[in-house]
Amino acid sequence: ERNKFGTCGPVVPLMQVRISEEGEIQAKGPSMMQGYYKQPELTAQMFTEDGWIKTGDKGHIDEDGFIVITDRIKDMFKTSGGKYVAPQMIETLLKEDFFIENAAAVGDGQKYVAALIVPSFEALEPWAEKKGITYSSREELVKHPEVVKLYQERIDNQTKDLGQVEKPKKFAILPVEFTQETGELTPTSKIKRKVVNEKYKDVIDSLFVD
């Protein structure tokens, strides 16, 4: 049995898989569904014109023939320059940093990508104390020049291998956490993009002011 960490496994026998121009994983084979019963409109949405199922997943097939999913097509957004961006890939890289608890990449219809950063306050607050940074609230803490500098360096480092289009050009550090209770996260800790976009609209808009 062939397994490879970080992939969905190899293409199974009798199945065909291709990657569309938009990066969507599409499949075809005898075990796949033929369509929705008596619902031609839904069937048309599910299939390409030449009969391939649209999985809704963005990804690629690696050098060993394993399928790698990187994002959901519906979560992708397009910049004003026409480039498609997969936010989850950017967010995953950012969240690997010790000082970042969560992140949301934004930029639909904009000239560039930006990011909302949720700090790991368990890491940031002791760091600030060691640096002698005084503050009366988290709102004040995240606006401190030394904190902004710290996060600029961390973001630059985490995204150094991304393409220029995908690298966040600006960011905002939020003084709050994303939680299920406050509505930003699903029960499986995925970002509710619509909620985040609405709740932090003013912050997001400020990131795209020239």
Rank of each mutant, 00 (worst) to 15 (best):
E49R: 12
I53D: 08
G23E: 10
G56R: 06
I19L: 04
L42T: 00
D71A: 12
E24Y: 11
S31D: 11
G29S: 01
E49D: 15
W52L: 05
F47D: 08
G35V: 07
E22C: 08
R18F: 03
K54V: 06
T55C: 08
T48I: 13
G65L: 06
Y36S: 02
M46N: 09
K54A: 04
M33D: 09
E49Y: 02
G59F: 01
E24I: 13
I19H: 03
G56F: 11
E63A: 04
G29D: 01
D50G: 06
F47E: 06
T55M: 08
G51V: 04
G65Q: 04
I25W: 06
Q39L: 13
D57T: 12
D50I: 10
L42M: 04
D62N: 15
E63K: 04
K38A: 11
G23H: 14
T70P: 05
Y36C: 01
T70H: 03
A44L: 01
G29P: 02
T70A: 05
K38P: 03
D64S: 13
E21D: 15
A44Q: 15
R18C: 00
G59H: 01
E22Q: 11
A44T: 10
Y37P: 05
K58R: 14
G65F: 00
V68W: 09
E22D: 15
I67G: 08
K58T: 15
I67A: 06
A44S: 13
F66N: 11
Y37N: 12
I67W: 06
P30T: 09
I67N: 07
F66P: 08
Q26C: 14
D62S: 12
Q26L: 15
E21W: 02
R18V: 05
G35E: 11
P40N: 00
P40T: 00
G59V: 10
Y36L: 08
T43A: 00
K54N: 04
E63C: 01
S20I: 14
M32L: 15
K54L: 03
Q39V: 08
K58S: 11
G29R: 01
L42H: 04
E22A: 10
T43G: 03
E22I: 07
Q34L: 15
P40E: 01
S20Q: 14
F66K: 05
G65R: 02
E24M: 14
G35K: 07
R18S: 02
I53W: 12
R18H: 04
I61K: 03
D62W: 12
A27V: 13
I53Q: 13
D71I: 13
H60E: 07
D71Y: 07
Q39T: 09
G56K: 14
I69Y: 02
D57Q: 09
D62A: 13
G51F: 04
Q34M: 15
E49A: 15
T55E: 09
D57C: 10
I25E: 05
Y36V: 12
P30K: 07
F66A: 05
R18A: 05
F66R: 00
Q26A: 09
